[in-house]
Write a protein that binds this DNA or RNA. Sequence first.
DNA 1: CTGAAAGCGCTAACAG
DNA 2: CTGTTAGCGCTTTCAG
Lengths: 342, 342
Amino acid sequence: MSKRHVSLKTIAQALNVSISTVSRALRNHPDIGAEVTRKVQELARELQYTPNPLAIGLLKDKTNTIGVIVPDLVTYFFSSIISGIESLANEHGYYIVIRCSYESYEKEKECLENLLKLRVDGIIMCLAQETQDYTHFNHLLEAEIPLVFFDRVCRADEVATVVVDNKEAARRITRHFFESGYRRIAHIAGPAQLNITRERIAGYKQGLADCNLSFDNSLLAHCDLSIPSATAATQRLLALLSRPDAIFGVNDTTAFAAMKEIKRQHLRIPDDVGLVGFTDEFHATVVNPNLTSVMHPTFEMGREAALLFLAQVNTKIALPPRQTVLTTQLVVRESSTKALVE
Amino acid sequence: MSKRHVSLKTIAQALNVSISTVSRALRNHPDIGAEVTRKVQELARELQYTPNPLAIGLLKDKTNTIGVIVPDLVTYFFSSIISGIESLANEHGYYIVIRCSYESYEKEKECLENLLKLRVDGIIMCLAQETQDYTHFNHLLEAEIPLVFFDRVCRADEVATVVVDNKEAARRITRHFFESGYRRIAHIAGPAQLNITRERIAGYKQGLADCNLSFDNSLLAHCDLSIPSATAATQRLLALLSRPDAIFGVNDTTAFAAMKEIKRQHLRIPDDVGLVGFTDEFHATVVNPNLTSVMHPTFEMGREAALLFLAQVNTKIALPPRQTVLTTQLVVRESSTKALVE
DNA sequence: CTGAAAGCGCTAACAG
DNA sequence: CTGTTAGCGCTTTCAG
């Protein structure tokens, strides 16, 4: 069997001491004689001994492992958040095990179960789009297994969360449109059950109110965040008798899909239709015209989520769940700044 | 301690049988009486017993875990490959633990060491750009720890690899340019030490030869795959006295950066400069003009890599390393098709 | 058909 | 200062 790894036993036998002596020597336990300690450490280095985390995990019931569940691995939004989680986790000696829910409720439950079976120390996740029942988290809450939600959240009074100021951002976008001369401002929103959808719609409405514009339900199009669905939503909006002159997408992918569709219909951006996205990835500055977008600190969001996770791990007492709200910034580019007709 | 998880012991005590009986009953061992088996399984289900993978791992020296190292987590290319790995790994009961090398040789070594310390069953990875010394893999090869490289590879005679037909693809791009009327065809290549760089340059040269064009070293610009560096490379090319009329980037990100720079200099694509990328991500169809690109089957590449990994895990005998070559496809769009002047 | 015991690698309480 | 023992959760001989 274990030709592969040297264990304490290997060292103990070679040096003719007991396993516990080796164990202590390696951790510089004061009880152990200087000479023995030196010899043990020297041999350990030579043999490239590394403690077996399985054994320690078994003993301590701790794996230094964080389960991460995302609805989608490919999108910039999620991959950059994962990057943030990985970066902070790593700095603190944690490993991340990734699973993808593919926006499915069933898969999400399965991922959760699997990761718990693996004995991860806790979970950092973003809810799947489909998820409307939140009872599968009961178990974690009862067992006090660390849990952090980011972006799409639920049960925020019980679970730590990291989000951005969705409402404020949406409000700012709406006002920006108004100030740029747009009057029929539409919003392509996500699925109704998501908090981000609700909050951004709330901000959108607030923004309209700020500008004395009335809310028109036909200007609110829902999509399931997929590209085809965003395209369809755009088509619905553009087909309205009274066509919108501005569209704000729930994320950049949605906005890119909208951009493609708007161009396909030979409408000009920003002159015929203004467009704003949400996330601000690199491609916003590559597309034509450059996309105005809300700068969403995704990498930071990942790091914050990991931070909230660590806070839970390192506390024995159950502290009230922390809510981290990151601030966004509107980055104005060409897609929402038409020449004002005074 | 373990309020959290029920163990065989829990069940054994409740049923007043021995631990080994429970262990056997759960695996339907024929030795165990039908009645006992039924009772054990029933209670196990009720108590939601799940075997502790740490204990099994300790015993079997196997964790069902794959270490994945990528140079970058955020780029579409890598995130979609990770997605492919995750998908296949999951189907076979494996978990993936992700680490990022940030294109650094030192970090790559560190990631590798860390993952091995964690006792992953093997490694699937893409070399960091900086990596030029490949001796840190000796240990894995000697210990016969499964290892798979994808995209950027080394020691291909000893290690299983998944790549695409880089040379052929580059050749096809070059010929496509020629057939579209371009004559001064430039290439923004990656760092010289990478196989993908070498192979694509070889294909580029072959393509030039096919078209009876001579190779001009000034039309070959290297970059480090970062956006600023790709921009700089573009600038160098565009500043040439005899400016190229076509540029083929080593990947889409490079091509997008080039596109941005070309536009900034008020040159028209495809009329003044033709442009082709490599990877073909969604954004290729959003930018203006749509980017011609080589369709790189990234998700499949991830799945293939996982497949090669599993092949190694499931074989006792050391089989010769398999080389999987995936085929690409040139997707011609607007950025490389100027109106031919006959 | 079932139980006891050893061992995977490690730590910690308890002896000496 | 060092060794013995027990135990984390599990599988696998070996007894009975």
